[in-house]
Amino acid sequence: MEPLRALIGPDTGDATVAQLCARAAILFLFGVVCIRIAGRRTFSQITPLDIIVAIIVGSNISRAMTGKAPFFGGLAATLVVVVLHRLIAMATLHWSALAQLFKGAPVTLVQDGVVDRTAMRRHAIGQADLEEGLRMEQVESVGDVRLATLEAGGKISVIRRRDADT
């Protein structure tokens, strides 16, 4: 426990700039884990990576603005988070495994009119959620669906069966 305390510094507001940066990096990764655990439907319009950056940046700026954190240390810690976000976003363009870890992957909910109840349970999608997603795409019934997918951003996308149009 002593090495961690040396890394992150005291909780009395006397942490160094390096310790504040270490805290920011640790909290960034912890935040990503928390958002991933909460599930993609919790924040369905932006990626978990974007959410955690927005929360940390907003909090850091608020604390620096009110004097609850050292001004320059708070700015340095916020910069670390923003740079980490940018580096991870750039890295996900090159490594699909990293993209899947941070952004998630689409999940098939309906294939050729057949609902995958296991996938729905795993991602906390109820029947009403699925039906809402279908209605949002102007699809009346599951039988009219060739493919319905829970996208990484939390939206349910739907491709109609060709014979359902007639």
Rank of each mutant, 00 (worst) to 15 (best):
S96P: 00
F102V: 15
L134I: 06
I55A: 02
M90S: 04
R122P: 03
H123C: 01
M120T: 02
M136H: 11
V142F: 04
D144H: 06
L134C: 10
S96A: 07
V33A: 05
D116A: 04
T42Q: 10
I56C: 10
A99V: 01
R5G: 11
M65D: 12
S62L: 14
I37C: 05
T78W: 13
D144R: 00
A105D: 06
D144L: 00
A76C: 10
V110N: 02
I35C: 08
P70N: 15
M136I: 10
L4C: 13
I55R: 00
G113S: 05
Q45K: 09
A54D: 02
A124Y: 10
C21A: 15
P106Q: 08
I61W: 10
A76E: 08
L150H: 01
A38Q: 00
T47Q: 14
A105P: 01
A6H: 13
I35W: 02
V142A: 09
L49Y: 05
D163P: 01
V33P: 02
I159W: 15
L29R: 03
L98E: 03
D116S: 03
M136W: 09
D144I: 02
S62K: 11
Q19W: 12
A119T: 07
L93I: 00
V32A: 05
L134D: 12
H85I: 11
Q111L: 14
V114Q: 09
V107L: 07
D14I: 00
V32Q: 04
L49I: 14
A22Y: 04
G74N: 05
I56L: 13
I61F: 11
F72G: 09
L134F: 06
H94Y: 01
R146S: 14
Q45D: 11
R63W: 08
L79S: 08
A148W: 01
R23M: 09
Q19S: 07
V33R: 00
L87I: 11
L75A: 15
L79Y: 01
V139K: 06
T92G: 00
Q138C: 11
E151M: 04
G9R: 00
G9I: 00
A22V: 04
M65N: 12
F72N: 10
P10D: 15
A64H: 04
A77Q: 03
L84Q: 06
R122F: 06
V158E: 12
A77R: 04
E140A: 11
R23N: 08
K68G: 14
R117I: 04
D129C: 01
A64Q: 04
V33W: 03
A164K: 06
T12M: 07
Q100D: 12
A15D: 00
D144P: 03
R146Y: 14
I37E: 05
P106F: 04
F43M: 07
I61E: 09
A105Y: 03
A148S: 03
I61L: 14
A99I: 01
A15V: 07
A128Y: 02
A124D: 11
V33Y: 05
A124L: 09
V114S: 07
A6Q: 12
L75D: 14
G74C: 10
